[in-house]
């Protein structure tokens, strides 16, 4: 078959030319960024978990944020930002961080996306900035406040700054190893989710001065909420990633492989 083809091709004397794909946003086709933003808004309308003492809910866009970096790479930041802004425009009553709510999901997608793109230094800078905005606020110097970002921020910092773990997780995600993708996905999802919730917490504290009297008693609840979100996002993340790979659909791990 191959030989036959080459003989017909030799009829004209022109070398074949290799074309690189064009018109992308951080390596991702703009249509995917658009579609992700629309998916994100759809997910924002589906409630999942209540917020204690506040009457609000966490919607399943928390899951979308957690897996966005693995699916889209750094472009996840743009997609989540667009999705967050639209959610705010359509349901302007939903978010107590007001018009700035989109920042949290942007940061979540950014840190994990940069990590997937192997831009770990930049990911580290962003994550440290988030940690700093939390700790610079005098509220977080109060009794026991240091436990609030724990344990998942510690895991995140470890994934970003401990080279063996960073390399291992990235390798497993990119190679889609049947078994080892699970712990690796858990780590990536943790990075995204912890970056998101620490940004949220920091913003809440700067705006509304919630002191340790709120954070410390609800600590256990929040850690379990985060755990549930991270576990379910791991399952969905693996499902989505292997599905995309099998169907040969465009996504980020294809670019960085």
């Amino acid at each position: 078959m191959k030989d036959e083809r080459s003989t017909t091709q030799n009829t004209i004397d022109q070398p074949s030319r290799r074309w690189d794909v064009k018109g992308r946003i951080l390596g991702i086709p703009i249509s995917l960024v658009v579609i992700w933003a629309a998916l994100f808004v759809t997910a924002s309308a589906i409630p999942a978990l209540p917020v204690p003492g506040m009457g609000g809910v966490i919607t399943i866009n928390a899951i979308m944020t957690a897996i966005s970096g693995v699916v889209l790479g750094p472009a996840a930041a743009v997609a989540n930002m667009a999705g967050g802004i639209i959610s705010m425009l359509l349901f302007p009553f939903g978010a107590f961080l007001g018009p700035l709510s989109f920042l949290t999901v942007t940061v979540g997608g950014l840190v994990s996306g940069l990590l997937l793109a192997n831009r770990w230094k930049l990911a580290g800078v962003v994550e440290l900035l988030v940690v700093a905005t939390w700790f610079v606020n005098p509220d977080s110097w109060q009794t026991l406040m240091w436990i609030v970002p724990l344990p998942y921020t510690a895991v995140t910092l470890l994934v970003i700054f401990f080279p063996p773990l960073r390399h291992w997780a990235r390798k497993q995600i990119l190679s889609l190893d049947r078994v080892r993708i699970w712990p690796a996905m858990f780590l990536y999802v943790t990075v995204a989710h912890s970056a998101e919730f620490l940004t949220t917490n920091a913003m809440v504290n700067w705006m509304y001065d919630l002191s340790w009297q709120y954070w410390v008693p609800t600590w256990l609840y929040w850690v379990s909420v985060d755990t549930v979100i991270i576990v379910i996002s791991t399952i969905i993340g693996v499902g989505v990633l292997t599905g995309l790979h099998r169907a040969r659909l465009p996504h980020a791990t294809e670019i960085y492989r």
């Binding site: 086709p29 579609i35 998916l39 999942a48 399943i60 979308m64 969905i236 599905g243 465009p250």
Partner: peptide, 29 residues
């Protein structure tokens, strides 16, 4: 149960939407 429901929604939803992306990409450009 509720979270299982979200998994069984999100995975097919994302995969299905991504399948349409190529048409959109061609139409846009």
């Amino acid at each position: 149960l509720r979270l299982r429901a979200s998994a069984s929604l999100l995975i097919p939803l994302i995969l299905g939407a991504f399948r349409d992306s190529q048409t959109l990409e061609v139409a846009i450009s």
